[in-house]
């Protein structure tokens, strides 16, 4: 069974803490990486761009972040091989269910879902059922 590696990207450390806690409890990941900005995350991912093993299997991405927001990150990430081959789906996390954001997220086929914070266990169970993890 391969290692499920989940990447969390959120500028709010509390939110990261919560997401991390929930994922850990759900025991759906072997490895969890946390980055507090989209830029940091990109830098990190560029180093393991082609390494399918190292590259995360799932990314939880916050929408509202300073300097580069969630959509800016998406624009950069869609060209990464594991992402474009749909081996690394992305789930957007947000504080508000702004309709415009939801619509905009739909334009990216790599985004498989849109959760409203805080992340709950049930949502993760859903993912398991769908064989995402």
């Amino acid at each position: 069974m391969k290692t499920t590696h989940i990447l969390l990207i959120d500028d709010n450390d509390i939110d990261n803490f919560i997401t991390n806690h929930v994922i850990t409890k759900a025991e759906i990941a072997e490895k969890i990486t946390i980055k507090s900005s989209a830029i940091e995350a990109l830098d990190y991912l560029r180093t393991i761009r082609d390494d399918f093993e190292q590259f995360p299997d799932l990314i939880f991405l916050d929408v509202a972040m300073p300097i580069m927001d969630g959509f800016g990150f998406l624009n950069e990430i869609v060209n990464f091989p594991k992402v474009s081959e749909k081996q690394c789906p992305i789930i957007m996390l947000t504080s508000s269910n702004n309709a415009e954001d939801i619509v905009r997220s739909r334009e990216y086929s790599v985004v498989i879902d849109y959760f409203v914070k805080p992340l709950k266990m049930e949502l993760l169970e859903n993912l398991v059922n769908k064989n995402i993890v």
């Binding site: 709010n12 509390i14 939110d15 803490f17 919560i18 997401t19 806690h21 929930v22 409890k25 509202a64 947000t94 504080s95 508000s96 702004n98 415009e100 409203v116 914070k117 805080p118 992340l119 709950k120």
Partner: peptide, 21 residues
């Protein structure tokens, strides 16, 4: 409105999440 609603809700969401876990 967009920013305000977001910025008002975000901390609350965090708090809710914390409370829950």
């Amino acid at each position: 409105v967009y920013s305000t609603s977001h910025d008002l809700r975000a901390p609350l969401k965090s708090m809710l999440g914390l409370i829950d876990i």
